[in-house]
Amino acid sequence: MLKNGLKALIIIAAALLLHKTAFAVETVELPEEELAKESVLPVFDKSVSVKNRRVVTAKRWDGDVFYGMALTEPIYDVSKFGASLYYNFNENHAFGLMFAKYASGLSSYAKQLHDQYGLDYNRAPKPDMLLMGDYNLKVFYGKMSLTKSAVINTILYGSGALGMVKFQNKSYPAVAVGIGQKFFFTPQWALRFDLRLYANQAPIPFLSGKMTDGSSGSNPTTPPSYDDFDERLTYTTTLDIGLSYLF
């Protein structure tokens, strides 16, 4: 709900920013018989849904910078910042490299735990960097007009990524699947939204009896070594919001 609201807000704000001064529009009354009354499509030899695409991606590079927010992360800082570079083989397939650097802090929930119970999750190894090869399958090219003077082209795509996530102590292989949407405000510039589910081995930050630092009156414990933390398969859902430029 919140995500959708945020998305809509960004789109509307951007459209308004790009809104040009309206032309001297005059109301023209269209005769009834000239208005569309069929939802069927004309028949051509080869049925192509769009001609003269405004946004042509085939055989072009696109570079992105993005901010990522982990939606299901309880302990570590939910933010990461990254950049990616894709090559579009055609209008359907693209492949690129994605790099992200995680913010080094803790989540607000972890800070709360620290304040109330003296649990210091800075002792656990934090995620540091992410490097993945990302394949995009562009399934739908569309168009929307929020105002009568601005048109936004959209590309909906599915993504599958494979790579490594580096924690402070160790690197782990990671896979991610997701869905994304680009909103092109010009034939080059686009806002990019990616919703991904990551799966990777990761240290469990909850280590019984070794996380208290004594700040809330509890007994301080000796900080554990990173090797003391057990590992498990961890799933993280992230939403990336970025700016994309098509070269």
């Binding site: 040009k20 005059e26 000239e34 569309a36 499509l41 004309p42 769009v50 405004r54 007009s145 048109v151």
Partner: peptide, 21 residues
């Protein structure tokens, strides 16, 4: 109705309207 930039869609064919005078 909107700044037309030369992109044609199949579902628009037959629905274009000239609004000049």
């Amino acid at each position: 109705y909107y700044p037309f930039q030369g992109e044609f869609w199949l579902d628009e064919v037959g629905n274009y309207h000239y609004l000049g005078k």
